[in-house]
Design a protein around this nucleic acid. Structure first.
Lengths: 190, 190
DNA sequence: TCATCATGTTAGTTCTTGCTAACATCATCT
DNA sequence: AGATGATGTTAGCAAGAACTAACATGATGA
């Protein structure tokens, strides 16, 4: 948190993701950012412009390359790494994701950006499973496995993010490692 | 679609779930319902009242009893049934769920209603897994398994609901049955 | 010291929207 | 036919929110 613009953008992300675009006023954002409303309008000409610039600014990309290189062709260990990396991106982008969910109709062009990651992860994972199949470690269809794995990861993430009132006492980390254990066993040849 | 009130409530659910409470105007709802704005206010005194009555009206409960009685202690078959039932409730309540997601701050009391189902499902599933463990079919912790299973089911549901722009060509039904196959194998004693 | 620049303050304009009042229309029931 | 009740129409009020203009303040740097 540094420049005035950053303060405003941070505040807007927090509020937009909490309440949605229309429900938030520029006055609220200014107050949250600790500046005057006038300053907000001087930096971003309009509320909508602020919204768009907030979206543009805060998108974190996964470190695909590092992830790729760290794989060791041990199913459970690799899946743990991949999942951790995916959870990491999702978590870092959680506010943006919520913001997007609550304001879908306002930024159709933004979907492409947001959905780039799952799609890239899917490609990566498919290739990984395919190679594992070639090595004789598994038999199932690589693409199906990839979609399954990513969807589950997303389910775990989203559940822990939004449904915090559920009386699920198991925490997400435990859930994830359990899931991977089961998944690994479920797809391995014995 | 029958009485005037129903028409209005239906329209409000559609719009609230699409755009969120604040972004929808009473005029829009009236138009969508095919009535005049005045009629809307005559039936529901305020926009917020309409919102609350919409929430109250459209909550579908799962048929727990029928589900319970249909179980046959065959892991894969039972899980398919349980998952199908869960997906069914989720799907029937999809608009309400979206509506809730986009308007969290407006109806805190409603969370309890929405989260009743996952919690009941979890109890049911935990008991089921416990019994299966007693029968020697599995060894893992029943509660953990239940949470895993439900979270995944929710992930599959939500992905297919919201992320329809993902280039995941595998459809949800295939995903679900694949997942259950893997899950069953993953937790079974061999 | 003085000019510059970012910010705050205040007042105000305009548009939207929730909501009401008053009257008109029209179908139904007695 | 006439009363009743549900709905439509039109006009309008009150509040809020986006956004602007004009001026004040206060820090920074030449």
């Amino acid at each position: 948190m540094c420049t005035t613009e950053d303060k405003i953008i941070n505040a807007s992300i927090v509020l937009f993701s909490q309440k949605g675009y229309t429900a938030v006023t520029t006055m609220e954002i200014a107050k949250e950012a600790g500046v005057s409303q006038m300053t907000l309008f001087r930096h971003f000409e309009s509320k909508h412009n602020l919204f768009e610039r907030s979206l543009d600014k805060f998108v974190f990309s996964p470190k695909f390359k590092a992830l790729f290189e760290s794989l060791e062709w041990d199913l459970e260990r690799d899946l743990n790494k991949i999942c951790a990396s995916y959870q990491d991106v999702l978590y870092k982008n959680r506010k943006i994701i919520l913001m997007h969910l609550k304001n879908e109709e306002l930024n159709p062009h933004f979907e492409a950006v947001l959905y780039k990651f799952p799609n890239e992860f899917k490609k990566l994972l498919s290739r990984y499973f395919e190679e594992m199949r070639n090595r004789g470690a598994i038999i199932e269809n690589p693409e199906t496995l990839a979609v399954n794995f990513l969807t589950t990861s997303f389910g775990l993430f989203f559940t822990s993010l939004v449904m915090n009132k559920l009386t699920f006492d198991t925490d997400i980390q435990t859930c994830i490692s359990n899931y991977i254990k089961i998944f690994t066993k479920g797809i391995s040849l014995l």
